[in-house]
Structures are given as C-alpha cells and as structure tokens.
Amino acid sequence: MFRIIHKTVLNPTVTQMEIEAPLIARKAQPGQFIILRVDEEGERIPLTIADYNRVAGTVTIIFQIVGATTERLNHLQEGDCLQDFVGPLGKATELEGLKKVAVVGGGVGCAIAYPVAKRLHELGACVHSIVGFRNRDLVILEDRFAAVSDRLCMRTDDGSYGQKGLVTDALRELIESGEQYDEVIAIGPLVMMKFVCQLTKQYGIKTVVSMNPIMIDGTGMCGGCRLTVGGKTRFACVDGPDFDGHAVDFDEAMARSAMYKPFERKAYEEACHLFEQAQ
C-alpha cells in the first residue's frame, strides 16, 4: 500500500498528492509516469510523475478531476493509502545537451511540463516557459515555473490572468521576435499539442510531445495505448510517452482517446452521486 503523505488542492479541479513510494522515487526521471489503482476494484490509470524526492522517498502526482477514478482519488486524504502504485514507467524525456528550450504547458499538462522545465534549468539550459489555462481560477504551479524559467509567459483563454490568448500565440510571438530554440517541448491537451506542432513545423523547430493515451498495464502488454508516429505503430507506454510531435498522428490519437467517453461520463456521474449520498 502506498501512503499519501501530503495532499494539496491546487485549484478547484486539480489536486497534488505526494505518495510514499521509495523504490519509484529512487529511479523516477522527468517524463516518466506511474499507474495507480485507488482501491481493490479500481481501474488502472496512468499519471505522469510531477516531481520526486529521492531522500524522502516520495513521488508527486498532480491530477485533474475528470472522471470516476480521479473523483475517488480526490476523496482520499493524507494518511490514506492507494491500493497500487507502479512505476517508473516509460522512457525519460531526453534533455541532455539542450541549450535553449521553450517548454509549453497547457492546463493540467503543466504538472508534467514543470519537472521538465526544472530539470532543464538544473542542467543549465535557458528555459522559456509558456503556460496556458482557461481562466485565472485554474492556474497552477506559477511560482514553481517562475523559479526555474528564464522567461515565463502566462496565457489565459479569457484574459482573466496574464495575457489573453493561446499558448501557440505566445510561442509564435517569441519565435518571430527572434528567439532561437533547440527544441520545443509541448505537454497538454492533444489539440494544443497538435497546434503547437503545426506552428513549429513551419519554423523547422524540433518538437517533443508527451502522449497520455488510454492504457491498462503500462508495460507494453495490451497495446491499447498505440498511436501512429511517422506511419509506424508505437506504444506510448514503452516507446514513449515522448514522441517527435511532427510525426504523431494527432487526429487518430484524439479519436482513440474518446473511445470510452460515454462510459466514462456515466461512471463519473455515478461516482459523484455516490459521494453526494454519503455526505
């Protein structure tokens, strides 16, 4: 069992938990993920590692409450335990040797973009972080990004915080103002990553995206997380989750990620209903 050491509400729909998992904490690297089950009947869900503390033996996850499992997870408190916590899975993001990088995070994807920015900063790279949220209430990790970024661009869809606009607008402005990036790393909703890649392709800037498809085992066994990259079938769990964004078939990935939407919506409603009744 894996104990929740700290729980922090980052915004009304996003929660951070620090989980006691010393073996995983020892090995975890930015870009890798874990799979958890909340309880004995729970489904397995993948979450990218947001941070880790090798000394304290903890792994931090940040999740958005979007469905039944994350709703259940959010009802656990400090001291409670998770049934299962498996990792670190997937390949680490390749960051060595990069001199100047634009890290683009969208929404809860910022939780995954942050450790990447942090590691790049530690490696001495110049980091420009571009983070976007729907509105002011949903902003997370601003201080942490600020601490590891040479430049931080905040965008909200409605202009309630930072500048109004999309992360792609901010990235275009930076590129057009003459900023030269070795690489762009984009982590967020599929549609955001798709448009970041369309933009960077025009400028010929290598772009890495972190894919988070539906998954069961996370070890290459089910093939449920497969996606098409450069015309080839790849498994996000073992070949990724990072891929060359210019080669990823985003439309296919979006269709696949929506496969169980009706089931998920119903399960989420049922879970919410159960918790309401319990109160």
Binding site: G220, M221, G223, R226, L227, R256, A258, M259
Partner: peptide, 24 residues
Amino acid sequence: GLPRFMNIPGESLCGVYSANEFLT
C-alpha cells in the same frame, strides 16, 4: 506479453483490440 498487429490500414481505429487488451 507483447501483442503483434498485422500492420494493415485501419488497425488503430476505435474498436480494434489486441486480444491481450480485450482479454485483460
């Protein structure tokens, strides 16, 4: 445990499973 696919067009459509995924 690594499932094979045929590498034919349409294999990534929703509703195509590896037997491993379906059975798991």
